Simulated assay, not measured.
Amino acid sequence: MKNRKVCLVVGASSGIGKAAAEALAGRGHRVYGTSRDASRVTTANVVGLDLEINDDHSIREAVGKILEAEKRIDAMFYAAGFYTAGAIEETTPEQIHQQLDAYFVGAHRVTRALLPHFRKVGAGRLLYMSSNAGDAALPYHAIYSCSKAALQIYCDGLRYEVEPLGIQVSYLQNGGVKTGAEASFRRAAEPVAAYDGPRDRAIAAFHRMQQKGPEPKAIGATVADAIEARTMKPVIRADNFSKLIGFLGAVMPAKLFRSQLRKSLDIA
């Protein structure tokens, strides 16, 4: 295959990461997909690798195995993580650390492991899964929103540093996607009764958005398109909802925007 790329998909055992690995492999790229347990990576023509996003040694070992086998890595898509929901007062500092480790620090660890190779060859693509929550904090999902906002600012800063070296950086946003994430999210650990009503309605509304969203396959195709494009866009808004939220956040009065967001999560 002409322009066949060697791709690393972090978090390839389920959801959007699995869909991205499937799309890339289906187009003939050489794909390595990671999970804490490589046996959970079951997509055809995707090589599974053990990788723990909080362990530098694990990450370096996985990257080393790819380079040993392929002599190069051309692109990385980061889709690992989970989300925490609940009021800020209910969320422990330990949970905040865990959330940031999943979406932000873990992404940084993988990035640091890849950059020496990318710098050496003068090329490479880094694509990260973000969320509309990175632009507009979601009520009762503030810690999740913080982790995505941090990731987006990280990408913006990283882009200044590595673009002159031939390395492209982008993040992708999408609205609710039917990934099954609502079955494995983490609730804030120390519930406060004062938040019971609005907190539970907001979490339920967020889950409904996911359940009504598209299957991950469409997002997987968007990831593959970005990695194959001549130049990745700095921000990829994959669906009309993401484009609309970005536009409304920029043009609507803040009070009106917040009111509409509250209504969308059933806490108006």
Rank of each mutant, 00 (worst) to 15 (best):
G28K: 10
G28N: 11
H29R: 09
R30D: 12
V31S: 02
V31F: 08
Y32Q: 06
Y32F: 15
G33W: 01
G33M: 01
T34C: 05
T34A: 01
S35V: 01
R36F: 05
R36K: 08
R36P: 03
R36N: 05
R36Y: 01
R36T: 03
D37P: 04
D37C: 00
A38Y: 06
S39T: 14
S39E: 12
R40I: 02
V41T: 02
V41H: 01
T42R: 14
T42S: 13
T43P: 04
N45H: 14
V46P: 04
V46K: 04
V47N: 01
V47I: 13
G48I: 05
G48F: 06
G48W: 08
L49Y: 02
D50Q: 04
E52M: 03
E52N: 13
E52P: 00
I53C: 08
D55K: 02
D56M: 00
D56P: 00
H57F: 01
H57S: 12
H57W: 00
S58Y: 02
I59L: 04
R60D: 15
R60K: 14
E61T: 13
V63K: 02
V63I: 15
G64V: 08
G64R: 11
K65V: 08
I66H: 07
I66K: 06
I66R: 04
I66T: 09
L67Q: 10
A69L: 15
E70H: 05
E70Y: 13
E70C: 10
K71A: 15
R72G: 03
R72T: 14
I73M: 08
I73G: 05
D74T: 10
D74A: 02
D74L: 08
D74Y: 07
F77V: 09
F77L: 10
Y78C: 11
Y78M: 10
Y78R: 07
A79Y: 11
G81I: 12
G81M: 13
Y83H: 11
Y83R: 03
Y83G: 14
T84Q: 04
A85Q: 10
G86E: 07
A87W: 05
E89K: 11
E90N: 09
T91D: 05
T92L: 14
P93Q: 10
P93K: 08
E94H: 08
Q95I: 05
Q95A: 04
Q95T: 07
I96F: 09
H97Q: 14
H97E: 14
D101S: 10
D101C: 03
A102K: 08
Y103P: 00
Y103S: 14
Y103N: 13
Y103A: 14
